[in-house]
Write a protein that binds this DNA or RNA. Structure first.
Lengths: 232, 232
DNA sequence: ATCAAAATTTAGACAAGTCTAAAAATAATT
DNA sequence: AATTATTTTTAGACTTGTCTAAATTTTGAT
């Protein structure tokens, strides 16, 4: 019923890689057949060696947390996905706590939440959820699944998909690197900001934006690809 | 600079056993020469075997966290004590959070705090301290050391040491067992309560108390030995 | 279709923490 | 002071998670 710290981290990594594969597949024309995650991808994400990953995959498969076919790749079973989503729920709720109650900035909370997400107590996390007024998203705009593991509906798109004169409200980021987050802070771009596309430069797809109807800034295509918003 | 979850738990156990030995020594006529803790005592407290304790003691001695003389016993070095006190600080602050902010009862928080005390982040614990308005004691009345490891001064005694007609304000408990705490709740006895000794029965030292000038109850000597108060 | 490159798995080893059983040291008792 | 009894330590083994190096499988390119 209970899983080790390390097992939880592997399940979370696999979940995120699967999610990422889904997003990339839906972006292309390819049909979304059950994507699988590779050993090497997991090793890269976990900062470990492929041999270690193989060892862990065998253990997770034995516990029926993943579907594992040698040399082919892995997916999560329903129970594996449940564990992963619960870890994500805890991670994101603790991030809200750190930002809303302890006044940390959104670029500071990741490492602390990485530890807090493994605290074992369902009561604790439900009380924390209530204490925070049942937030739907974390400080980066990522959705927080409910206790059943259901994610709130979202309809966001990448800023990079907007055309000239279109605008939207920023709802999240696709890159959580502290340096990127601090760059956004410095540029006056945060969750809830109104972003209007003034111009899209043809040769490098960089954008000229109007932030909150006031501030005019230029951002690269790389930046635009990592900002999520709801078009209006 | 950083220690494993298990090392931290051993250091905390040794600290508490030393503290306990100190208290018992000061109660008797014996001089308080540097008490040492035995392998068996640690094994009992950690719910493990003596052989495992010996293995860990070697490691802790190598890291200069304890003074270890084979067959003789152990004490903490200054740096070992510092680690232990910091764990206790974190444990007690998290307990305050759980009770004051998440509305847990004082008998429910121990297991959660046992996990939370190992979260590594000095920033986090200082922010938490401020968020809780720098409490001096945890929900059981135990003193919370400051970030330098200094404990606030306290002058408490056991309820069992009071004589007929003496009274005091309850400041803590010596036993943290959930069943004991729930018994106190049911009896209307909690931190801050005024306890007046109406009568001490001679043959079993049980007491007749007046709680908050209203409620009259009888408690055994065992209970009286586990209630701390400040005499007035 | 074959061969080289890349990815994955196996084999064997290591560190942390635990255990049982046996040996050694200390304490207690007569 | 000698001899049990108790406590503590050592020896050797097991588990979890990791690693390197070698073997195997799959993929890609000609």
């Amino acid at each position: 019923m209970t899983h080790s710290y390390t097992e939880e981290n592997y399940l979370k990594a696999i979940y995120k890689l699967l999610e990422q594969a889904q997003n990339e597949a839906s972006g292309s024309a390819a049909p979304v057949h059950a994507e699988e995650v590779t050993t090497n991808a997991i090793a890269a994400k976990m900062q470990t060696k492929a041999a270690s990953v193989t060892d862990m995959l065998k253990k997770l498969a034995e516990k029926k947390l993943i579907h594992y076919r040698k040399y082919q790749g892995v997916t999560l079973t329903d129970s594996g996905r449940k564990v992963a989503v619960h870890i994500i729920r805890k991670h994101r709720l603790w991030e809200v706590f750190l930002v809303k109650k302890l006044d940390f900035r959104w670029d500071e909370v990741h490492d602390m939440a990485e530890q807090l997400e493994h605290i074992q107590s369902d009561m604790l996390i439900e009380r924390l959820d209530d204490f925070l007024d049942n937030p739907r998203v974390d400080p980066h705009g990522d959705p927080i699944p409910d206790r059943q593991g259901k994610f709130p509906a979202t309809d966001t798109q990448l800023l990079s998909s907007l055309k000239k004169n279109q605008s939207g409200i920023m709802t999240g980021v696709a890159d959580h690197a502290p340096a990127f987050l601090r760059y956004l802070d410095k540029s006056g771009i945060g969750l809830g900001a109104e972003l209007k596309v003034r111009e899209v430069l043809e040769y490098d797809s960089s954008m000229h934006l109007l932030v909150n109807k006031k501030k005019s800034i230029y951002i690269s295509h790389d930046v635009a690809k990592n900002i999520l918003l709801r078009k209006k």
